[in-house]
């Protein structure tokens, strides 16, 4: 018997009572979703910026290598998506589009089509996600309803910049992934 059969038959041999799957009730809430989303992303150490602020942010931070997968911000970009993720290692800023955001925790849903290369939102030093205000949903239950069973090889809920508190619980922004997350709510 191979290990697969071994494990499965061992489990089958254990008498267990039937336990029904619960139904998930509707936990959505009323309220200004953009306001809630803004609070949530600030709590996660991200921030909301205006579309018009980006040029200033780029200049102020002296970002050199900039990539945009959002057509309306292509004017700010000066590099294209490479063939290999490793070539993104000196990318200062990536501007990508999020599919929708979740107000309760500022999680933003991205799939392969938003990233081009899966490494992009992680390897870039700084990240901007453009998000439509009317895409916001209340909570994670609504979020998964929206995703449903849509197929993507890779999907990501991103909710803030890379962070760690592994040294004495001191919060440090910018562990391995992007050092900042700015969201443009359109």
């Amino acid at each position: 018997m191979n290990s697969r059969e071994h494990i499965l038959s061992k489990i089958k041999a254990i008498p267990r009572d039937e336990k029904p799957l619960p139904k998930i009730p509707d936990f959505s809430f009323e309220g200004d979703l953009a306001e809630k989303f803004t609070q949530s992303i600030q709590f996660n150490k991200g921030e909301i910026v205006g579309a018009g602020d980006l040029a200033g942010i780029i200049a102020q931070n002296k970002f050199k290598k900039i990539l945009s997968l959002v057509s309306s911000f292509e004017a700010l970009a000066n590099t294209e998506l490479p063939a290999d993720s490793h070539q993104l290692k000196d990318l200062d800023l990536a501007i990508i589009e999020g599919q929708f955001g979740v107000a309760e925790n500022a999680a933003i849903w991205l799939t392969d089509e938003n990233m081009g290369l899966r490494a992009l939102p992680f390897i870039t030093e700084h990240l901007v996600i453009v998000l439509k205000k009317n895409s916001l949903v209340t909570n994670m239950h609504e979020a998964y309803k929206k995703i449903s069973l849509a197929h993507s090889g890779f999907g990501l809920f991103i909710a803030g910049p890379s962070k760690t508190a592994d040294i004495e619980q001191s919060l440090v922004i910018g562990a391995h992934g992007a050092k900042s997350l700015r969201v443009v709510l359109m």
Binding site: I24, S40, F43, N44, E104, N105, A106, A107, D112, L117, R118, F122, N139, M140, H141, A143, Y144, K145, H151, S152, G153, F154, G155, L156, F157, I158, A159, G160, P161, S162, K163, A165, G177
Partner: peptide
């Protein structure tokens, strides 16, 4: 849909965040 329940609980229970900043869903390789 059960991910909705668990992702709401996990980070809040673990560190008091509303969600971990990266929640990656791997379905097929690049």
């Amino acid at each position: 849909e059960h991910l909705g329940v668990f992702l709401r609980l996990l980070a809040r229970s673990a560190t008091g965040q509303s969600i971990t900043n990266y929640n990656s869903h791997f379905r097929s390789p690049s």
